[in-house]
Design a protein around this nucleic acid. Sequence first.
DNA 1: CGCACACGTTGTACGTCGTACAGTTGTGGG
DNA 2: CCCACAACTGTACGACGTACAACGTGTGCG
Lengths: 219, 219
Amino acid sequence: MAKRSVRLSRDAIIDCATALADAEGLEAVTIRRLAQENGVTPMAMYWHFNDKDSLLDGLAEHLIASVKLPEPGDGMWDEQLRAILVAFLDAIRPHPALAGLALRRILVAEPGLRLAERVLDLLRQAGFGPEQAAEVGTFLMCAVITLVVGDPMAAKAAVGGDAAADMRHKQAMLQALEPGRYPNLIAAAPALVSCRGQDDYFTINIDLLVQGVRGTRRN
Amino acid sequence: MAKRSVRLSRDAIIDCATALADAEGLEAVTIRRLAQENGVTPMAMYWHFNDKDSLLDGLAEHLIASVKLPEPGDGMWDEQLRAILVAFLDAIRPHPALAGLALRRILVAEPGLRLAERVLDLLRQAGFGPEQAAEVGTFLMCAVITLVVGDPMAAKAAVGGDAAADMRHKQAMLQALEPGRYPNLIAAAPALVSCRGQDDYFTINIDLLVQGVRGTRRN
DNA sequence: CGCACACGTTGTACGTCGTACAGTTGTGGG
DNA sequence: CCCACAACTGTACGACGTACAACGTGTGCG
């Protein structure tokens, strides 16, 4: 594709990999493909990254670094918590193929540490002890990531996989179930196949999480 | 390893793959490895499964089928909902390496359909409309799965990866952060590295989810 | 009793992946 | 000018999923 202008840089590779993942899914992000995309030999990648896993570390860090944390402000703790979760969500939503990488990588780089620190701080304000704040905070961040990775758009890339046709097919399958046994599935079929990726889905479930924290705290 | 006694069966392969994933992680579950484990040629697998993806479908279905759904009983909807989420959690906790497979496969086989139907039914009882029940129900099941996949035990298999040493190292790293910037991370360091996989973590966050549903419903 | 045939399995081969190891260049500071 | 070192190339290996065709074998029918 593109011949490199002067030199290759770690950041350029990460940007390229991010674009590639957005366009064709995470499985398209391959050492060889990235090299080709930059007009370079596969082994050239290993100058900038120790191995593929550290490339993925870099991708996750870059993704988490794009979170626009709101100022520590003065609102209620629950409003601030929602704002942080929404900021996190907004950052990862454009990159559903990469979101899963962050699941086990939040605490490995500085941007994730800042995010986690803010979340823990608010949970402490809400009355949680250090251990419970750790447990709830860990889950909250993982849950936000899960909101994004379930997106069916992440599966569109596979050899021209037609996502729309797939969804139509799935909905038809649900509505063809035995009405006696699965009335709710049939009634909810359109929403079940399309809800992920829709604004409603994100707002109602972020709400659920914040309400859950309110209902779980000790004071 | 093991020579097959008489013949190979789809179920035997799935059981073998499950055990393999539990022992060495999902990345050890490979067509060739499975064949070798059963004293058979790799291509023999393709008689029982179309391709690797349908093998993974089978693994996910088998996992979801192991959920011991409580009887539709007569308690409050929130108690019943918790019971179902706990049943789901209990089924997938022994197999953290496989849990992630279920994320996008709940609605593809019968056991997942039954689980989803029950969840939707209870959400309708709680006052949600069909669309909202679909959105919340989808998220609830994904969230329970997320509780399990974050487990650090899933990363132990890689070439003799010493999970305990890894956790000690991570905790030391957290506690070595600048105290001025990351006080909460430092205070919660022990819990942050060990909370996943502990009973507290699961119960408090299942609680959070149920409380969240209560706080989000319309009536 | 024997034979055909489908079921289950084998053998070989191809293309892709990550990456080890050693060699080669281009460029900037002495 | 030159040379050291950062950046990159070339070749090779083993593992992966799997296409395709050939092979053995147990079972049911004549």
